[in-house]
Amino acid sequence: MKSQDSIEDDAVDDIIGHALGLIDFRPQRYFVETDAGSNDPRPCPERVARTRSQIGLLLNDGCEPHGSEPIRPPDDLRQRTLNRIREQKAMTLEFREPFVEKPRWRLADVAVAASVLCAAFLGSLPALKNGKATAANLACSSNLTQIWQGVEQYATTFNVYPNATVENRRLPIGATLALMRHTGHLPESVPLTCPGCSSRLQARELPHWNQLNQQSEQLLRDFSAMMAEVYAMHPGLKGQVGVRYLDRSMIESVKSVIPMAGDRPPVNGRTPLLQGNSPWHGGFGQNVIFADGHSAFIRGRSIRSLDRDIYSNRQGHCDAALDPFDIILVPAGACLNQD
């Protein structure tokens, strides 16, 4: 049972509740309180109004809803709140993406990509090979041009084209390069081998001309081996006895078809084979530099219809030219028949 104080407190709270509108006037509640014995459970309206007025004095701070001073949210508050939600949604989507999406690359995708790359690579191989071959061809042509410049300077100086075998019958054709170096017509840095071959030899590596004339068999054998892959040279003219110089004035009108140097022919030991192109350019042909200074890549062994083979004289021998118009290049390691 409630004490008297408690009942009075409840009455005060009830008045406050009514004064501030805190009580729900639900029909059910009203009838229950009515059944409790009172005709009207609501406090006297005058007491409620008095209480409301006193509470107003205690609590009215002049702002809404009981005062006139407004408390308004900033105009953009709603928009900023919406923006934060959008950012939150975007972050959530970003976070979940790796978990909900399928793998970016399936095995089939990788296989297709790999096959496309392979096809592209294989397709580009010929181009790469061609590019490499073209570069080697240009380098080879450049080497031959440098040798020709030496030959031409020698011919300008001595009116004959250089030929070591005229000086020493036992020397191979390649000794002519040592002779040119000795006379100062071949710079030390000139490459003497085609970029397509396996060995590399420069003019500075040649033995001294005086050494070559020491008549040492071992030295000549070693020198011939050294010359095995060096550019082929014009062997000079066949004379009544041995070899003679190719006179500059003799070929003046046909310089454009007289080869001075070129890629080595296919050989069996030191002997040129009768068929086949130089091995240094994939067997497709050989670079040749002519007496007038122009170089060309010859796809066959024939330069003129009258002369079928660039690597043999008109008698079909790997020997000196029969006349100034006989087209012939002899491997640098080969010796001529001096009989």
Partner: peptide
């Protein structure tokens, strides 16, 4: 303590 609040709220005098 709840003493005095009822008197204040129901007072007709100026607070």
């Amino acid at each position: 303590p709840r003493d005095g609040l009822e008197a204040l709220l129901e007072s007709t005098a100026e607070g």
